[in-house]
Amino acid sequence: MAAGGDHGSPDSYRSPLASRYASPEMCFVFSDRYKFRTWRQLWLWLAEAEQTLGLPITDEQIQEMKSNLENIDFKMAAEEEKRLRHDVMAHVHTFGHCCPKAAGIIHLGATSCYVGDNTDLIILRNALDLLLPKLARVISRLADFAKERASLPTLGFTHFQPAQLTTVGKRCCLWIQDLCMDLQNLKRVRDDLRFRGVKGTTGTQASFLQLFEGDDHKVEQLDKMVTEKAGFKRAFIITGQTYTRKVDIEVLSVLASLGASVHKICTDIRLLANLKEMEEPFEKQQIGSSAMPYKRNPMRSERCCSLARHLMTLVMDPLQTASVQWFERTLDDSANRRICLAEAFLTADTILNTLQNISEGLVVYPKVIERRIRQELPFMATENIIMAMVKAGGSRQDCHEKIRVLSQQAASVVKQEGGDNDLIERIQVDAYFSPIHSQLDHLLDPSSFTGRASQQVQRFLEEEVYPLLKPYESVMKVKAELCL
């Protein structure tokens, strides 16, 4: 049975990233139509530049190519590739079939990587351009969430054990800070992308030097003109047959890092959902379990974690691919890159769409948070109580021993009897502590235990987050809708 299948058929496997999760716009960027249309555009740009620099290419040939950029006979191309065992030459023939007058000058002087690699770089750039505003929107939604809850005390956790208090907004800023680093890295790697350009079979530009009869300047002009037509500021000066596969490492490393950030955020949300302090959106008709109707599973956060793990592992592909590119190139890269580049971007696209949807509907339960604080705060307040007693004339050592005994009794009630923490009640009825009984409410005010959390939130948002989001103001209103 021949390899390949009808990918629109229910009898043929289709990647869930495309069929179930990723956005239509990201799927289109990695589609065959987008790819092969870009090949034709690159052939047109090459012909236009070659004509401008004096090669015998007519206006009629150029116009014929322009008129057929979208006229792609995919069936013919597939048949040609089956016959020739070469995808680029299959599309040269297919393009030439609908451009008979231009057929002889299509791909003039070029090698397969002229269309293959340059198209990949265009796709990487455009895919990054799709991700950047999506990530900015996630940051914006979380920034709104953090600002609104900047002063809401909550129990902090280290080692997932109760620690000092923080605020809900401050905790959210930990998430935002990681995503801001990801946004900066995505922008950097996007701006650092260079075009492969017009380089020939081993990167020496020998074929173009021959076409222009040894004119170095025209060869350099050709490279520059096509690079500018493709919208790049610069091209690699040095290439082998391909652009260095280190570029793929750079791009997928940034995406993998984004995956790590999203995994951490969504894990926190899942843990908070278990504590009943916070939940992701839950639709009115949504079913959490087929057997347990009360369940409210954090399905979206779980999906993000599941896909983020996949995204983090994909960076190993370009690392290994770059390491086995012998001399000017081997074909070890080809099949692998067809999979890992598309999957990385479709996965990143999915987790950003999902995280935006989550961040637009996060639900906080202040009463649950308050109750958990009441359970733990008495123990945390013991040092403040000791200091207040010393100020009232008591002995630190005597007070410490009193607190120690009462704390152990209260802990026994919590752990052995399943009761509430009654340390404060014990202190309130103990005559030894009568000098500070009137101060206990103040000493137990949760806001006095959150330090500068709310001020940190305000400063972080104003100095770091809002300036970073400013270039994306025009796209901030787009909502994230999930079908599944």
Rank of each mutant, 00 (worst) to 15 (best):
P10K: 15
Y13G: 08
R14Q: 15
S15F: 14
Y21G: 11
W39Y: 15
Q41W: 14
L46I: 06
A47R: 01
A49M: 01
A49V: 08
P56R: 10
I62Q: 06
K66H: 10
E70V: 13
F74M: 14
K75Y: 12
M76N: 10
A77Q: 15
K82H: 12
R83S: 12
R85D: 00
H86S: 01
H91A: 14
V92N: 07
V92W: 01
T94H: 11
C98S: 12
A103T: 11
I105V: 12
L108I: 11
T111S: 10
S112T: 01
D117Y: 00
I123W: 06
L124G: 04
L130G: 09
R141H: 15
S151E: 10
L155W: 00
F157M: 08
C172A: 10
L174T: 08
L174K: 04
L179W: 02
M181K: 09
L183M: 10
Q184A: 13
Q184G: 11
Q184H: 10
L186S: 09
L193S: 06
R196W: 01
G197Y: 01
T202E: 01
L209G: 08
L211R: 01
D216R: 05
V219L: 12
D223Q: 10
F232M: 14
I237V: 10
T239E: 00
G240W: 00
T244H: 14
K246P: 02
E250N: 13
L252W: 05
H263M: 08
K276D: 08
Q285K: 15
I287Q: 02
I287C: 14
S301F: 02
A308N: 03
A308S: 12
T313E: 02
T313M: 10
V315R: 08
D317W: 07
Q320H: 11
T321G: 09
S323T: 11
Q325N: 15
D333F: 00
I339M: 10
E343N: 13
A344C: 03
L346E: 08
L346V: 14
T354M: 15
N357D: 11
I358T: 15
V368T: 11
P378G: 05
F379P: 06
T382L: 02
H400N: 05
E401D: 15
S412G: 11
Q416G: 11
R426L: 05
I427N: 04
F433C: 06
F433T: 07
P435T: 06
H442F: 13
L443T: 05
S448V: 13
F449E: 03
R452S: 12
Q455I: 05
V457N: 06
L461W: 07
E464D: 11
Y466G: 14
K470D: 14
P471Y: 15
Y472V: 11
V475K: 15
M476L: 14
M476Q: 15
E481L: 10
